[in-house]
């Protein structure tokens, strides 16, 4: 029962974030980029629901537009990492031998680089910007998905129904597509929601360090960074983007947990004594 409720809360929070991002494509209460000098550090009011920042920008509008950035980064980074990682993992599990060894050692190499270091290296080469942050995050996600899907796929390959499929004349590609992938999809989906949450956090961290999205593109991480200079004058400036990050990460994690259960076809199986 509790699991179900956690999943609902998670989906609600994630939906709220996605909804805000979608809405901001067409409409925000104010422009998220327009500087209004007269309206600096306004407290919440009917005009500005969450107040304004040091440049007089509307905070709610900036949060909504920032959700766009976060989702864009998460979506692209996770899709790239998942696509490449799962493909490598499945290949390693299906072929074993030196291919598996090569894939896994390559993984170890990538695991050795912290994401922030990697992002800084990349921006040192190609300059700072949102696309390089996405690239760094995608690279980091490849070995995570490769390792996970290889491990899960190996347990499926050891099952007798795979042997039956081989006795039925099916090759490794068909077995991977028809038996292995559907049976490991749930763990991958769960990892995807968690990686998505981590990507949002990491994007915020990179933007905070100045190697992520660049002004004037709105970003939760940079809002946090900029609010730091005005912490004594207006502490709530740090609170809003912080809350947005915490709630969306929490929402995605709860949703991932719930999905794990919902994706099991045996759910609701009756125990037998």
């Amino acid at each position: 029962m509790w699991r179900h409720r956690a999943f609902m809360v998670g989906t609600g929070l994630s939906g709220l974030m996605a909804g805000a991002a979608l809405l901001s494509l067409f409409w925000t209460p104010h422009s998220p980029t327009q500087i209004v000098v007269r309206a600096r550090f306004k407290p919440p009011s009917w005009e500005h629901w969450l107040g304004t920042d040091q440049f007089g920008r509307d905070i709610l509008s900036m949060l909504m537009a920032g959700a766009q950035t976060s989702i864009l980064v998460g979506l692209i980074a996770v899709s790239l990492g998942l696509g490449l990682g799962v493909a490598l993992g499945l290949l390693a599990a299906a072929r074993r031998g030196w291919i598996e060894e090569a894939v896994m050692r390559l993984n170890d190499l990538t695991f050795a680089f912290p994401v922030v270091l990697l992002a800084i290296l990349i921006t040192a080469g190609w300059g700072p910007g949102i696309s390089n942050a996405i690239l760094a995050l995608a690279i980091i996600n490849v070995p995570i998905f490769a390792r996970l899907s290889r491990g899960a796929a190996l347990t499926i390959w050891a099952r007798e129904f795979v042997l039956a499929a081989r006795a039925a004349g099916k090759g490794p590609v068909r077995i991977t597509a028809e038996h292995v992938l559907p049976n490991i999809a749930n763990v991958i989906v769960v990892q995807a929601t968690i990686s998505f949450a981590i990507a949002i956090l990491a994007e915020a961290a990179l933007s905070y360090l100045g190697v992520g999205s660049q002004p004037p593109d709105p970003s939760w991480g940079r809002m946090l960074a900029e609010s730091q200079n005005h912490l004594f004058r207006s502490p709530v400036l740090a609170l809003w983007p912080g809350m947005a990050i915490v709630l969306s990460v929490l929402g995605l994690n709860l949703m991932g947990d719930g999905l794990r259960d919902l994706l099991d076809p045996r759910l609701g199986r009756r125990g037998r004594a």
């Binding site: 129904f161 039925a168 099916k170 038996h179």
Partner: peptide, 20 residues
């Protein structure tokens, strides 16, 4: 262990025909 938990029974039974 011999039956894929995510396939329906008719599909499981027909599997050898699919390939052969």
């Amino acid at each position: 262990g011999a039956l894929d938990p995510r396939h329906r029974v008719a599909r499981i039974v027909a599997e050898p025909l699919q390939a052969l």
